[in-house]
Design a protein around this nucleic acid. Structure first.
Lengths: 233, 233
DNA sequence: CGACCGTTTGAGATCCTTCAATACCAGTGG
DNA sequence: CCACTGGTATTGAAGGATCTCAAACGGTCG
């Protein structure tokens, strides 16, 4: 375990990592043995779409943005993973999206080659990876419904509720820009801005700062996110 | 070369199933032991969103449609799995989409409880499930880009190329209706129809029948699908 | 043939985008 | 202290891609 002597997590307890959840102490130790920590400053690129996937990453602290791009530059955000999320969940191949640091981040890095040896040796690890990947898939499928069939208001409501769930509070901080949000929801920055204003006017949310929002009427937001209305607001 | 002329596989060779790919003969035998075949006629429902996921399914023959719905009935297609595809790729929980038979289908059914015992016992099986789920995830992420950022023409081009890939020919058969296609691409039936007409007019495709299309200019379709144009056609 | 169902085509409406101007905010330097 | 600057967010007006509503078309099947 080469995890000692780090400025921020004063003591880094590897066994608390998400990959290891559900594994016993001994197995978790094996996983930790191949891991190393890595830091990126806000704005830096962790890897790009098409890069050889040499590592599986786990976010330890901070927030990333993941996106894919079309030939002419149109961008689709895939997510904003924060602490506990895993990246590059494929047994092999190349990265299918670009990962950039949204804030300063700390990551735990598992080299793919060693990781695969472990997957064969450590009982329960492959099963764990299946579970984690399956959760990601479920999430992506919810996002398909959002992008394909929800209106701008419904998209934003869904997004804010997702953030609330992730941050475990109704006082949200938004580390990403409006452009990032727009590219996540399949909208333009102006539509996001207008929709935020509308939700604010309707007293469903409040904006203490530009990059912070409070959820005022969770029930209404949830109804909206679920598409419970013929008039899509 | 699909030259055999088999109406349906007269003898069912389980070891050819997708779950088993990469497993040795003995391991594949264990998996086959818990499986059972199941048939559904076109239009029947295999399971519904929210149902308890008691089985993992593999499509043996025919095509399904998978979809999620919003409260007011708006529908988003998740895919049209055909032979070789797996369904219900989560270690536990409930189904997150509805699965209906588009054509008559044969499925191989692995009861979840027994399957999980196997996952712990058969080396390589959990790893295989991870790989399969990870492929699904990758596919879903491509679809996110499509739904969030592509124009109607680009969506249709992408869809046709995906079918060509799946069917391994440029002479496509379309077992699904225009409504199904619309719900897959996040469009309306009328827009799908108009876009098909446009691609036909531009000689990128031909329509020998309503439910069949020929790809005439694959390069142009691929450029279109990749978003290689400022004017989105 | 005629009814039925899915598809195509047309005309008008709408949500979202585009283009453009304005506002806000933090940092910098006069 | 305040003007200036650059970056991001908001607001406005006009346009456009897609949707909605409606009619016509075209195969299939009794």
């Amino acid at each position: 375990m080469q995890v000692q002597t780090l400025p921020t997590p004063p003591k880094f307890d590897g066994s608390a990592l998400a990959v290891c959840r559900g594994l016993d102490r001994r197995a978790a130790g094996h996983v930790m043995a191949i891991s190393s920590l890595r830091r990126k400053a806000a704005g830096e690129t962790l890897f790009s779409e098409g890069d050889d996937a040499d590592c599986i990453y786990e976010v330890v602290s901070g927030t990333l943005r993941l996106y894919k791009m079309l030939a002419d530059g149109r961008r689709q955000m895939m997510g904003f993973p924060a602490a506990g999320h895993l990246l590059g969940l494929a047994p092999a191949g190349t990265h299918v999206y670009t990962a950039e640091a949204l804030t300063d981040v700390t990551l735990c890095c598992y080299p793919r080659a060693s990781f695969h040896r472990l997957v064969n040796d450590v009982p329960g690890l492959a099963r764990r990876m299946w579970a984690v990947t399956s959760d990601e898939l479920r999430f992506a499928q919810d996002q398909l419904l959002l992008l394909g069939r929800k209106s701008a208001s419904e998209k934003l409501a869904s997004f804010l509720l997702m953030l609330a769930d992730q941050q475990d509070t109704d006082h949200l901080s938004l580390p990403m820009t409006r452009t990032d949000i727009a590219d996540y929801l399949g909208l333009t920055i102006e539509t996001v801005s207008r929709t935020v204003t509308k939700l604010k006017r309707e007293k469903l949310i409040a904006l203490p700062q530009v990059n912070a929002m409070d959820i005022l009427d969770r029930d209404a937001l949830e109804a909206m996110a679920a598409g419970e209305s013929a008039e899509h607001f």
